[in-house]
C-alpha cells in the first residue's frame, strides 16, 4: 500500500476535497488500493455488504434486476465515475445490496473493509469526523436524487413506467442502454 496514492485519490474526490492532508492521512490508514479490469465483478446484488469503495480512476457500472413481460434481467441503470463512493448505503442501512457493480473500464478503487469502515465511522477524532461528513454529503445528494425521482414518479406515473419499459425493451433486444437511475 502506498499512502500517498491513497491520499491523492481522497483529495481528488468532491466528498473529501478541502480536508487537510494530515486528516486525509488518518483516513488513508483504513483503506487499501484495489485495481479493477473491465467486466470484473466488484460486488453482486443480494450479497451481504462487506466493504465501501471510492473510485480513484475508471468507471463502474450499476446494474439492477428488472422485469419485463415475465422476463428478468440485470439492466445497467447508471455509471459511477472517479471520486464517487459506493457500498456505504448498504453497510449503513445493514441491508443486502440491491445492485450489482461491475467495472466498466480499467481503473483503481479505494476499498474500506467493513471493520475499517465501522472503526472510522465511530472515530471521535478529526479523521472520523471528516469521514462521517464526506459520507453525509454523498448520502445527502443521493437522498435528494431519490426524492426527486419519487416526485417525478408521483407527478407522472405513466410516463415513468413508459420510459423504463423502453429501456428494458431495448436491453432485451441487446441494444446497449446507459440510462440514469
Amino acid at each position: 500500500m502506498i499512502p500517498t496514492d491513497i491520499i491523492r485519490i481522497l483529495a481528488r474526490s468532491p466528498h473529501f476535497g478541502g480536508i487537510a492532508t494530515d486528516v486525509l492521512h488518518g483516513i488513508s490508514m483504513h483503506a487499501v488500493l484495489q485495481p479493477m479490469a473491465p467486466g470484473e465483478l466488484i460486488a453482486p446484488r443480494l450479497q451481504p455488504s462487506e466493504a465501501v469503495w471510492l473510485i480513484g480512476d475508471g468507471r463502474v457500472e450499476v446494474r439492477r434486476l428488472q422485469g419485463y413481460q415475465g422476463k428478468r434481467l440485470e439492466v445497467p441503470v447508471s455509471i459511477l465515475r472517479p471520486g464517487m463512493l459506493f457500498g456505504h448505503m448498504e453497510l449503513l442501512s445493514e441491508q443486502p445490496r440491491t445492485a450489482t457493480w461491475v467495472a466498466a473500464s480499467p481503473g483503481t478503487l479505494l476499498r474500506f473493509d467493513r471493520k475499517q469502515f465501522e472503526r472510522l465511522v465511530a472515530d471521535p477524532r478529526q479523521a472520523g469526523s471528516a469521514f462521517r461528513r464526506a459520507l453525509i454529503l454523498s448520502l445527502g445528494s443521493q437522498l435528494q436524487a431519490v426524492n426527486h425521482r419519487l416526485g417525478e414518479f408521483v407527478r407522472d406515473t405513466d410516463q415513468e413506467v413508459a420510459s423504463r419499459r423502453e429501456v428494458l425493451r431495448r436491453a432485451l433486444e441487446g441494444v446497449a442502454s446507459d440510462g440514469q437511475d
Partner: peptide, 12 residues
C-alpha cells in the same frame, strides 16, 4: 448517516 441510508434503501 444511518437515517439517510435507510431512507434511500426504502425508496429505491
Amino acid at each position: 448517516m444511518r437515517t439517510m441510508a435507510r431512507r434511500i434503501h426504502d425508496s429505491v
